[in-house]
Design a protein around this nucleic acid. Sequence first.
DNA 1: CTGAAAATGAATGTGATTTTCAATTTCATT
DNA 2: AATGAAATTGAAAATCACATTCATTTTCAG
Lengths: 147, 147
Amino acid sequence: MAHEVEQRALARYLEEHSLKHTKQREAILDVFLEAKGHITSEDLYQAVRSRHAQIGYTTVYRTMKLLCEAGLAHEHNFDGTARYEIAHEHHDHLVCTRCGKIIEFECEMIESAQNRIAASYGFRVLRHRHELYGHCAECQTSRHSDS
Amino acid sequence: MAHEVEQRALARYLEEHSLKHTKQREAILDVFLEAKGHITSEDLYQAVRSRHAQIGYTTVYRTMKLLCEAGLAHEHNFDGTARYEIAHEHHDHLVCTRCGKIIEFECEMIESAQNRIAASYGFRVLRHRHELYGHCAECQTSRHSDS
DNA sequence: CTGAAAATGAATGTGATTTTCAATTTCATT
DNA sequence: AATGAAATTGAAAATCACATTCATTTTCAG
Ligand SMILES: [Mn+2]
Ligand SMILES: [Mn+2]
Ligand SMILES: [Zn+2]
Ligand SMILES: [Zn+2]
């Protein structure tokens, strides 16, 4: 069984919350960790199903919610369908509306400016989303559709 | 008829696009301009309906899309339902997840940092969303639900 | 080994938005 | 003012992603 660290983290979360350790959850975590980038529930379901034909969509769906709660996955919504990525240090995204490419960025200056702004309003920030939509370098030249 | 400037802008957009000037569109724009803040289609529909009982939800819905295309309205989606605001200079938002209050902010430093980041990837930004979710000053103290 | 609690998954529900389509309205042209 | 092609309207139905239901199966503490 691969991904020992994450599997143990999941097991620990399940124990702490009186939830059960099932083969489905283990399998879905495995497949998720092998998938790259920012994957939709549907794509993840297809990937899961290719190895474990009996696992249902609902279980994949619910498990991704669980992995988010456990801090192992992060959910984003760039275009109306949720996408999941392996949790890692905070970052924001550039999203190419032509080819779908997603570039991650982080900027301490922006983060601190955000905090200053919120503080000036006495506002406590719990989370934020900062996404730049447009065309990536590769998509600049080609003359296709899309805005 | 109030809101002459905006009504004329709409009329101009309609002409330029071979669309027709209808009483519904005029009425919806009027009601929209009188509504304050960031209003949902549903709330706008209720407001429209109180003055023009015959106007249907679909028309309100479609007209708001039209007003966005015409540059008179901006659409945002903070929580799963679209909200519209009267178009004005660029800004981003602080959203209180307890009371729903929306505070607007603008930060030239953030905007230019964004542009630098995009440029470093050869990325052309067409639009962006930057939203800070949390609790507003008034909601900090009270002990209610919600994350 | 047992049984209570949780999980599964197929089916169904939900809520916002979008589309369909027959009837109505607009408006450039007679 | 009359005509008619094209656009609009609005009630109803469809769509889409997501959420819930519930009968059955599985987990796991005792
Ligand atoms: Mn990411
Ligand atoms: Mn605003
Ligand atoms: Zn691209
Ligand atoms: Zn508040």
